[in-house]
Design a protein around this nucleic acid. Structure first.
Lengths: 150, 150
DNA sequence: CACCCATTCTTGACTCGTTCCAGAAAGCGC
DNA sequence: GCGCTTTCTGGAACGAGTCAAGAATGGGTG
């Protein structure tokens, strides 16, 4: 995959060693936005079958700390990762199925909002989660329980 | 405590039975805003020493479902509960110590924000979490490691 | 006030996501 | 290629939260 070259530079620029697990995890997260750790482990193993779950956890933490990945964790959900970093975008989350979609931030720069009363806190980020129903779940819940499965 | 009468009505109005664990949990959450489950269990046992942790979990779920409590869960934190419901207020969270403070919503009605591109989602709530450092942690981190303890 | 049934509480085990640990292996700079 | 540092492996451990079955309790009714 040609993107491996880009990932290579990405890692080097962050003073991180270039290892096969890291490249595989980066590839997996890029091709599976908002995937949870388990899905990332499975996706990583498509490229690197023998990688351990601990390696993936460790890589995810290292890449997140380096700012190459962003970890998101809506309430009630396990940790999910996405490769879109730098822009301060937000998310819509489906209450029913947990689907997540990106939402561009109106201003683009963090913190895009400012609390009315910050209680002396030094706020550097405003995280916004829009809760609702995705199109599929919305259609299913508004119908007379004909096609819904419970 | 006189508030027990209010809590009694609160429960009955929600078609919930009035039990000692429920009153004790309500009291505990009201006097410990943003407390996590473990702290609530301990606070509840001050009033009702023999209550089981399962009862508290069950009560918290029942009261949350009934809308008497609100469950909040900032990323990386365990579940926390607060008794302020109805208004759509938000929170500032300290990245360092996890302290939480309420922030009144500018508009007051949910959803107070509307995503620029909602991807077809039926959005009913915009949850905002302001991340930063509380006054104490902010002061500690800006000092030359004299009073900080690590 | 006592009865009865549905609801709720207790006890204990269990799941799942995540982290910790020690040793083996691999990458990077020279 | 060498050596040191970092990373990966494999397994165990941890903690929050959940599940299940039986006992106890609440509260409307007569």
């Amino acid at each position: 995959m040609a993107a491996d070259r880009d990932f290579h530079h990405l890692l080097r620029d962050s003073a991180l060693r270039v290892t096969k697990p890291r490249l595989a995890v980066l590839t997996a997260v890029h091709s599976h936005p908002h995937a949870d750790t388990d899905a990332i482990i499975r996706a990583t193993r498509e490229e690197l079958p023998d990688v351990s779950h601990q390696a993936v956890y460790d890589v995810l933490r290292a890449l997140t700390d380096a700012g190459l990945l962003r970890r998101i964790q809506p309430a009630g959900s396990v940790a999910r990762y996405e490769a879109r970093v730098g822009d301060n975008h937000h998310h819509v989350v489906c209450r029913s199925c947990g689907a997540i979609e990106d939402v561009d931030c109106a201003t683009g720069a963090a913190p895009c909002l400012h609390p009315s009363d910050h209680h002396g806190f030094a706020v550097d980020e405003a995280e916004v989660v829009y809760w609702g129903l995705c199109p599929d779940c919305s259609a299913a819940s508004s119908e007379p329980a004909t096609t819904s499965r419970g």
